[in-house]
């Protein structure tokens, strides 16, 4: 019974990766369990210069989910490289830098500087709905997505994962465009743009008015998109969006994901990723399946 997966030449002890933005730089939950229990950690979205993010409130609860409008608050690339990365690299887990920028030059520079570090992989966030520039603007057109991917591809030999936004008409077109520019992998979905209003004050709950929806509410959308994208590209797909249980994770992998990420579910249950790993192992055992890889893309569509 093995949960081990290999993606873009990188070995993961299990296919469970903490999603960017939900797990900081991997050191906030170590009172409960070591980060090495996870296959990997995708760190908080990092930009060239530190960012203060959006005004508060930055979070609203929704039926089976949340909206967030953090706006990429992060300590900046220098601090990531000098402090957070070396700390996390001491742990036995795959370290993924999640990067964002306002301009192509920003992305290129961040990728160039990360290339000479020992970070394991780079996840390109071209899909953050919470910043005016350098978020979804890149990810919503094929040319935008391709341009950023190309620049980063030229800047680094590290495996490049491109994270896709669901806020598009046809996500498979974007996936093909980044594959053509040399992406090693795609991850999806980032959050879906949403809004909540307090009916007493007639004010949006988020100070940013709108924010990104995540959690179980988006799960079926994510499964559908992972299925479509994995049928459209040859590179591996990392699936995420609303995964909370082992059953969800298995469903996502059957849809075509070679590994999965979990974010929002951890807020409610910090042990959720551990329980998913245990549940996956039990599923393999109960069904007499030797390796978790054997379930990837095995959905039998009608």
């Amino acid at each position: 019974m093995s949960l081990e997966v290999t993606l873009c030449g990188q070995k993961f002890k299990n296919p469970i990766i903490a999603a960017s933005g939900a797990y900081g730089f991997g050191d906030d939950y170590t009172d409960l369990y070591p980060v090495s229990a996870l296959g990997g950690v995708s760190c908080k979205g990092t930009t060239l210069k530190p960012k203060d993010g959006n005004p508060t409130p930055r979070i609203a609860e929704t039926p089976s989910g949340i909206l967030n409008s953090v706006g990429l608050q992060n300590p900046g690339l220098d601090r990531f490289i000098s402090y957070y990365l070396p700390r996390l690299k001491k742990e036995d887990t795959v370290v993924i830098a999640n990067i964002a920028g306002a301009t192509v030059d920003d992305y290129r520079e961040v990728a160039t500087r990360l290339d000479s570090t020992d970070v394991d992989m780079i996840e390109l966030n071209i899909s953050c709905p919470n910043v005016k520039q350098g978020g979804a603007t890149w990810g919503v057109t094929c040319t935008g997505a391709a341009t950023v991917t190309k620049a980063v591809r030229e800047a680094t030999k590290k495996p490049v994962i491109v994270k896709l936004t669901p806020n598009v008409t046809d996500i498979t077109e974007i996936a093909r465009a980044v594959e053509a520019e040399g992406a090693d992998c795609v991850s999806l979905i980032n959050t879906l743009l949403g809004m909540r209003i307090d009916i007493r004050t007639r004010r949006p709950i988020l100070k940013n008015n709108v924010g990104g929806l995540s959690g179980p509410a988006v799960f079926p959308v994510a499964v559908r998109m992972v299925w479509q994208v994995s049928n459209a590209v040859k590179i591996p797909v990392i699936g995420m969006g609303g995964i909370a249980t082992a059953e969800d994770a298995i469903e996502m992998m059957m849809a075509g994901a070679s590994a999965i990420q979990m974010g929002t579910a951890i807020f409610g249950d910090p042990y959720a990723p551990i329980k998913v790993a245990q549940g996956m192992e039990k599923f393999l055992k109960d069904n007499n399946i030797g390796s978790i890889n054997d379930i990837v893309g095995t959905v039998k569509p009608w």
Binding site: G21, A22, Y23, G24, D28, Y29, K44, D52, G53, T56, P57, R58, I59, A60, I66, N68, V70, Q73, N74, I266, F267, P270
Partner: peptide, 14 residues
Amino acid sequence: QRMGCGVGACVVCA
């Protein structure tokens, strides 16, 4: 402040 994780991981509670 409205919170997500409560433990420092999500920077929602600025």
